[in-house]
Every structure is written in C-alpha cells, then in structure tokens.
Amino acid sequence: MNKKKLLAGPYLLWMVAFTVIPLIMIAVYGFTDRTGAFTWENVTAMIRPEHMKALWLSLKLAFLCTAVCLFLAYPLALILKAKGVKKGSFVVMVFILPMWMNFLLRTYAWLNLLDDGGILCTLLEKLGLARFSIIGTNTAIVLGMVYNFLPFMVLPLYNVISKIDENVINAARDLGANGFQVFRRIILPLSFPGIVSGITMVFVPSMTTFAISDLLGARKIMLIGNIIEQEFSTAANWNLGSGLSLVLMVFILISMAALSHYDKNGEGTSF
C-alpha cells in the first residue's frame, strides 16, 4: 500500500521545480538591483504615486468585476439547480465552449460591438438614443473582465449549490422557513465554499490582467498588470518588475488567505 505514495513523487518534483523555484527566482530578482546587490528599492517602489494609482484602480475594478460576477452567477446557479442535474451540460455549453474561440479574439470582438460606430452603438443611435462609446473607459474593462471570468464564478458556485440535498431544503420549509429564510439560513451558508472559491478565481486574474486593459482600455488606462508587464517587455527593468510582482503576490495571498478561512475543507475548489 505504501508504494502508492510514490506515485505522487513525479508531481511533487515537477511542482517544486516549476512553481517553487521560479517563485524563489522572482524573490531573488525583486530584492536585488542590476548589479546583484541586495536592495529594498524594487519592493518599496510600489508606493510611488503612479504605481499606487494603478494598484488602487486595479483593486477597484477587480472588486467591481468580482461583485458583478457573483451577482450574475448566483441566481444562475440557483436556476440551474432548480432545473435539475441534467442541465449541467448547459454550463459546459455556455461557459467552456467559448474558450475554444481565443480569449483575446473574443475580447477584441467586444470592440466591434461597443466602439464608436460599433454594432451596438449604431443600433442604439438608430433607436434614437444618445451616441456613445465606452471603449477606453473603466466600464469597458470591467465588462471585458466579467465576460472572461464569469465562468470561473459560475462553475464552483453551481458545483456546490447543485449538491445541496433537496430534502435539506424541504426540511427547512417544513420547519416553517419561507423562501427568503431558506435562502439566508440554508442555501447561503451551505454554498459558502463555492462563493469563496469563485471569488478567488475571479479576483486573482482580474487583479492582475494586462491584456484586457490593453484591448478595451485603448491603452489609456494603466492597471498594475500593465505596469509590471511593461517593466519586463519595454522598459526591461526586470528587478523593478519582480519587486512589484512580489508585492502584488503577497497582497493577493493575504486577501485570499483571509477569505479561505471560510472554506476549511476546500470543498469549493473542485470541478
């Protein structure tokens, strides 16, 4: 029986080699300057006004995106549960299938819909409504994020909610709980692991994205992801980029650790 343990060996080696060591590398770069001497500068660079501004904006948009995803996904998960297990294929259809059309292309397609002179705008104009374009605004970026990351909220939520025993809900109704009370006292607490995992899976990528803001922000809006990416690609200051990444990473880990307190068994993180 004990031989079974060895099967996890290759995985352990792989993960150490390709996640732990690279993380150490990023720390090494983050705490050194170009000559290789130790410095705090790259890390403390986060408090520079332009970086703080980008971090604050990223936080704001990521928070907004996570909230919108939660409010869109929760009713959907409830509806899917009410419709029965078979509708699980609907989830796959609607949320996995689009990934086969490239993520950048799909995001770029929103340009065609939302841009000045785009399809949606022309339509609204013809209906006599005001001419508008949201491309290059924070709204467009949040929309792009919600569009891309909504599946990562729906899947864990649906996963947890669909497993709630119908008889537990019936028992609550039997004991006198009305629809709202059933939701607040039974469904909501039982779905907490799914909420936690959904928030994690949406907040993390939206906090760090640079491609969506590139595409829909018309290059006017700088998120923290854009700043870090530019340090690596155009500015070629890897030490600074690593330093900022480290701070961002720690920031995310702390906020997620606070959240995961509620998901003790890790129930939510399964597909």
Partner: peptide, 15 residues
Amino acid sequence: HKRALNTVFQKYALF
C-alpha cells in the same frame, strides 16, 4: 412552511 405538520425525512436531512 405554513402547514401545522412536520416531516422526518428518509436520510434525516439535518443541517
């Protein structure tokens, strides 16, 4: 929830 009777479910359905 408005009926004056209560049920004991097959697999207990405890919260």
